[in-house]
Design a protein around this nucleic acid. Structure first.
Lengths: 78, 78
DNA sequence: CTGTAGACTGGCGTCGACG
DNA sequence: CCGTCGACGCCAGTCTACA
C-alpha cells in the first residue's frame, strides 16, 4: 500500500515540506521566520489544508535551503 | 548573459509552460480545455503576470502530459 | 512547539467582449 | 490564436488568541 498514491498535491507538498524541515531540525516557527511566512499558515500547508501559490512556495523552498528542482525530485511527484 | 538568472519564479514557470505547450503544438485555448482553466488566465501565467497556485499548476502540468518532477527538472529551477 | 479558530484584505481564477 | 480589459466571487495568506 502506497499512501502517496492517494494523496493530493497539497498533501504531498505538505509532507515534503515537513520532511525537509525535520531534516534541518527546525521548528515551523523558525521556518516561518526564515521564509517570512506566518507560522500558522505553515501548519496548514504541512497538513495539506492550503493551496499554496508558487511565490510563497519559493520562499518556503529557500527557507529549507533547497531548490524547486530538488524539492520535486522525489518518487511521489512522478 | 543568462536571462533566466534575472527572471522571477512566475516568469520561469510561464516560459516553461509555453515551451512545453509549443512542443505539443497546441494552442493556449487547447491547453485551457485540457486543463479546465480559462484561456485568458493561461495567457497571463505564460507571460509571468500571475502567481499560480499548486492545484491549478497541477492541472496545467497534467494538460501538458508531464509531471511536477519533470516540469521542474531543468537548469533554470536549480 | 504545534494546532485551531475567527476576522480581515488582497489577489487568484473566471468570464464576456474586443482587437 | 493571442493579448488585454473590466467585473466579480472566493480563497490565499496574515494576525491575534487560546489550548
Amino acid at each position: 500500500m502506497n499512501l502517496y498514491r492517494v494523496m493530493n498535491i497539497k498533501n504531498k507538498i505538505g509532507v515534503r515540506i515537513k520532511l525537509l524541515r525535520n531534516d534541518l531540525k527546525i521548528s515551523q516557527e523558525e521556518l516561518g521566520f526564515r521564509s517570512n511566512i506566518d507560522r500558522t499558515y505553515i501548519t496548514d500547508v504541512e497538513n495539506g489544508r492550503r493551496n499554496i501559490s508558487v511565490e510563497v512556495l519559493e520562499r518556503v523552498i529557500k527557507g529549507l535551503n533547497t531548490t524547486f528542482n530538488d524539492f520535486f525530485n522525489t518518487q511521489d511527484f512522478k
